[in-house]
Amino acid sequence: MEPWLVALDIDGTLLHFDQTLSPAVRDAVRDVAEAGHHVVLASGRSLVAMTPVATQLGITSGYMVCSNGAVTVRADRQAPGGWVVEDMVTFDPEPALRRLARQMPGARFAVEDVGVGFRLTELFPDGELDGEHRVVDLEDLWDEEVTRVVVRAPETPTVEFHTSVADLGLSDVTYAVGWSSWMDIAPLGVTKAAGLEKVRASLGVPSSRTMAIGDGYNDVEMLRWAARGVAMGNAEEAVAAEADERTLAVEQDGAALTLRTLLG
């Protein structure tokens, strides 16, 4: 049987909202990989935040798409941490950060140092960012090109935050707004789908044998890209509308249910 490329979001898809991984999902991922399919984690998380999840799932080969598509890594047992950067897209964050700082003076900003952690203007709430954290001045965030900017405003109501984002008119970058007052900004045109398409081409998997499972707004392009886009039951209606089908919610291990359809 010709293998599928199976792209999996992490938070709200594989991991429950308390960050636990159910045995049903873990076993389904491992069984699909052992059956010869290409399992590719695709997340807004940084590389340092994805590697522990890959370890929990038993993923030791293939690719991962990190930072919403800005960083693609390949498993390599000889590399530090077990993964080597295969592709990385960067941009100059200064114009966006200047606009954001004017529009959202109370927000916290961070840029990713790939494989290390983040430089930030103020520490984020505990547990929201992995790796090493170095607090710096705003101007120090744009001293070089970066893969991602993270905007967090924990004191701002989500609706107000979304309105502020819409008023910015960010047309020169790609951005995705999260469930809370959180936004990821990436180079223009960079999405999970863009990263996955490069992986698909490298693996030689036909477009017709691609599956993606996700729940968030940063999964929309990925769900459109896949021949079989599957929205989680906990996805908002605007996200689910872009999918070909819908499975159960993360609390009901909907990802495991869908993955097992590949096993006959």
Rank of each mutant, 00 (worst) to 15 (best):
residue 219 D to R: 00
residue 239 V to H: 00
residue 46 S to T: 01
residue 264 G to A: 13
residue 138 L to R: 01
residue 71 V to A: 02
residue 264 G to C: 13
residue 239 V to Q: 06
residue 22 S to Y: 05
residue 41 L to T: 12
residue 152 R to K: 13
residue 180 S to I: 06
residue 175 Y to Q: 14
residue 132 E to I: 07
residue 243 A to F: 03
residue 110 A to V: 01
residue 89 V to R: 10
residue 255 A to I: 13
residue 82 G to L: 11
residue 173 V to C: 02
residue 175 Y to N: 12
residue 237 E to V: 15
residue 157 P to L: 03
residue 235 A to I: 06
residue 6 V to F: 04
residue 204 G to C: 10
residue 215 D to E: 09
residue 239 V to R: 01
residue 202 S to C: 07
residue 185 I to P: 15
residue 91 F to A: 06
residue 104 M to F: 06
residue 160 E to G: 10
residue 41 L to S: 02
residue 110 A to D: 02
residue 144 E to R: 13
residue 125 P to V: 05
residue 198 K to N: 11
residue 127 G to A: 11
residue 32 V to K: 00
residue 89 V to I: 13
residue 233 G to S: 05
residue 69 G to I: 03
residue 46 S to I: 00
residue 125 P to W: 00
residue 127 G to M: 08
residue 147 T to E: 02
residue 255 A to T: 14
residue 23 P to D: 03
residue 19 Q to F: 14
residue 202 S to N: 09
residue 23 P to N: 00
residue 9 D to N: 11
residue 56 Q to D: 09
residue 185 I to M: 04
residue 200 R to Q: 07
residue 231 A to D: 11
residue 79 A to S: 09
residue 184 D to C: 08
residue 101 A to V: 12
residue 58 G to S: 04
residue 167 D to L: 10
residue 122 E to W: 14
residue 166 A to M: 08
residue 121 T to V: 05
